[in-house]
Computed example of a mutant assay.
Amino acid sequence: MTSQTTTAAASGTWTLGDRTVNRIGFGAMRLTQHGEAFAADALPRDRDQAISVLRRALDLGVNHIDTAAFYFSPLRSANELINRALAPYPHDLVITTKVGPGRDPSGRWLPHAAPGQLRGQVEENLRQLGRDHLDVVNLRIVGTDSIAERFGALAELRTAGLIRHLGLSNIRPHHLAEAQAIAPVVCVQNMYGLGASPEQQELLDHCGEQHIAFVPFYAIAGTGRTAGAITDHSREVHAIARAHGVSAAQIRLAWTLHQGSHVLAIPGTGDLDHLAQNVAAGSLRLSQEELAALDPSTTGRPE
C-alpha cells in the first residue's frame, strides 16, 4: 500500500457497543451477483473476484462488514464468501448481520421469522460465517407492529453468548424505544440519503442524541434500491463532483457521512475500482456552501 492510498481510517471512527469501527464499511449484498440484487436471472459474480474485493477492503482499512444469510444468489452466498476470504478473522473486524427475513433454497422469500424461528436464523449465520458468536445482529422488520417478542428472543440469545450486540433495521421511531426497554441498541440501519424525508432525518438525529450508530442503506443507490446506483444525480451533485474531481456517487456518500459523526456508511460493490472510490469518499470534506447546495435542510450538522 502506498502512502497515497486513501484508507477507511480517513472517514473517522465510531463505537458499536465495545467495538470501534471506521465509518466507511462494506455492504455484502451486491457481492454475489451482477445486476439487481436478488434477481433470479442475474449472473453469479466471479468467485475469485468477490474474494479479492473482500480482501482488498480489509487492506484499505475496512473493519465493518454488513451481511445476511439471505444475501445469496445461484452459486454464491455472501456469508460463505466472507468466510472463505477473511477467516481466520482479524481481531478488529466487526461483522454485522440481519435476521427476520428468510429465503428458501430456490431464492423465494419466506414470511418474516417468528420469535421462535430467530435462533435458527442466528445459528445459520454462525455456521456460514464459521463463528461461535455474532458481533452485531440487526432485527430487520416490515411494518409498524410491535417487535417486543422478536427483539426479546434476540436479547435472550445475547445473554446466552451467541450475539454480542443488537441493532434494528427498517424501523419506525417507536420501535427503537420499544427495543431499548428490552436490551441496549447499538445501531439503527434504515434507508437514508440525499433527499431523505423529514421523518428519516428525525430518526437519524434521534440516534445521534442517544449515541446510537445510524447506518444508511441505499445511500448511493437511492431510488435505484437493489438495482444499484441511480443515474439521475442532480446538477448540484454533478457540479460538486467535478469541482472535487470525483464521481457523483462519491459526493452522495460523502454528504451522508457529513450528517453526523454517528453515521456509518456500508456501500457495497463487487468491483475493485468502485471499492477504492467508495473508501476514498470517506476523506472528502464538503464545505457548508456545498452542503447547502446539495440539501439546504441538512446543513450545520456536527461531523
Score class of each variant (00 low, 15 high):
208 G>Y: 08
137 V>I: 12
140 R>Y: 09
130 G>F: 00
197 S>Y: 07
187 C>A: 11
141 I>E: 02
227 A>Y: 07
239 A>D: 14
192 Y>N: 06
155 A>C: 12
216 P>Q: 06
131 R>H: 05
162 L>A: 12
194 L>S: 01
153 A>Q: 12
121 Q>Y: 05
182 I>A: 04
136 V>W: 03
177 A>F: 09
194 L>C: 09
202 E>Y: 03
156 E>P: 09
148 A>F: 06
218 Y>F: 15
119 R>A: 13
203 L>C: 12
172 R>G: 08
139 L>Q: 07
199 E>N: 10
138 N>Y: 13
207 C>V: 04
219 A>Y: 03
209 E>S: 15
170 N>A: 10
201 Q>F: 08
159 T>L: 14
183 A>T: 02
230 I>Q: 12
165 H>C: 09
160 A>S: 14
200 Q>M: 12
138 N>W: 06
217 F>D: 03
223 T>Y: 00
118 L>V: 03
220 I>L: 15
130 G>W: 00
132 D>R: 15
152 G>P: 06
205 D>W: 02
150 R>A: 05
135 D>Y: 09
142 V>S: 14
170 N>R: 10
149 E>M: 01
182 I>E: 09
238 H>N: 13
132 D>L: 13
204 L>N: 00
198 P>G: 09
220 I>P: 02
125 N>K: 00
191 M>L: 09
175 H>G: 09
168 L>Y: 06
224 G>M: 04
130 G>T: 02
173 P>Q: 08
238 H>M: 14
128 Q>C: 03
140 R>K: 10
180 Q>G: 10
130 G>R: 00
172 R>C: 10
217 F>A: 01
128 Q>E: 08
210 Q>C: 08
183 A>Q: 04
229 A>Q: 05
193 G>F: 02
155 A>S: 11
232 D>C: 08
145 D>C: 03
202 E>A: 14
236 E>C: 14
213 A>D: 12
134 L>W: 03
144 T>N: 05
186 V>F: 03
237 V>F: 04
150 R>F: 01
238 H>R: 15
181 A>R: 09
211 H>C: 09
206 H>F: 10
171 I>Y: 11
165 H>T: 12
170 N>V: 02
215 V>D: 10
216 P>D: 15
152 G>T: 04
189 Q>F: 11
203 L>F: 02
199 E>S: 14
141 I>F: 00
157 L>T: 07
134 L>C: 13
216 P>T: 11
187 C>Y: 05
209 E>M: 15
213 A>F: 04
139 L>V: 11
193 G>W: 05
218 Y>M: 06
200 Q>C: 13
218 Y>I: 07
146 S>L: 08
142 V>N: 10
146 S>T: 09
169 S>K: 01
163 I>R: 06
218 Y>T: 07
207 C>Q: 05
208 G>H: 11
136 V>K: 02
211 H>F: 12
231 T>D: 14
125 N>Y: 02
180 Q>M: 07
223 T>C: 00
155 A>I: 08
233 H>V: 03
203 L>V: 07
215 V>Q: 09
175 H>P: 05
148 A>N: 04
140 R>N: 06
170 N>T: 05
151 F>G: 02
199 E>M: 11
162 L>P: 10
220 I>F: 01
131 R>I: 00
202 E>W: 08
140 R>F: 04
225 R>P: 01
183 A>R: 01
156 E>Y: 06
221 A>T: 05
229 A>D: 06
229 A>N: 07
181 A>P: 08
212 I>M: 13
165 H>G: 07
215 V>E: 11
193 G>C: 08
195 G>N: 08
180 Q>R: 13
202 E>H: 11
